[in-house]
């Protein structure tokens, strides 16, 4: 089982790719942990996160098989 990660908009440009996939390490419990694990840095300010296509928070738990999306503040409408 893996966690599939997606990046959108400016964040995808900053990260340099649209997606990542990783097996969940034992040290990763939350979306914020997952960001730190993948990028070796704290989550950027105003980072938004969705888990399985629903809004979540950086302290929301993640599990194997989840789809986790990171994105900047939304600007629709």
């Amino acid at each position: 089982m893996t966690i599939n990660i997606q990046y959108f908009a400016r964040l995808r440009d900053d990260v340099g790719r649209a997606s990542d996939a990783t097996a969940k390490p034992d040290t990763v419990h939350t979306a914020g942990d997952l960001w730190r694990h993948l990028h070796d840095s704290p989550p950027p300010p105003r980072l938004m996160v969705a888990i399985n296509q629903r809004h979540a928070r950086l302290d929301s738990p993640v599990a194997d098989g989840d789809e986790v999306a990171f994105f900047p503040p939304v600007t629709g409408g």
Binding site: A9, A69, F71, P72, V74, T75, G76, G77
Partner: peptide, 27 residues
């Protein structure tokens, strides 16, 4: 409308008159 602008996952990228593009940072 307010919730669409602040919660729905859309992101605007603008093309300026000089051909450069920029992401709209915030609503």
């Amino acid at each position: 409308l307010e919730r669409v602008k602040h919660e729905a996952p859309f992101w605007k990228r603008e093309r300026l008159e000089d051909g450069n593009e920029r992401w709209v940072e915030t609503n």
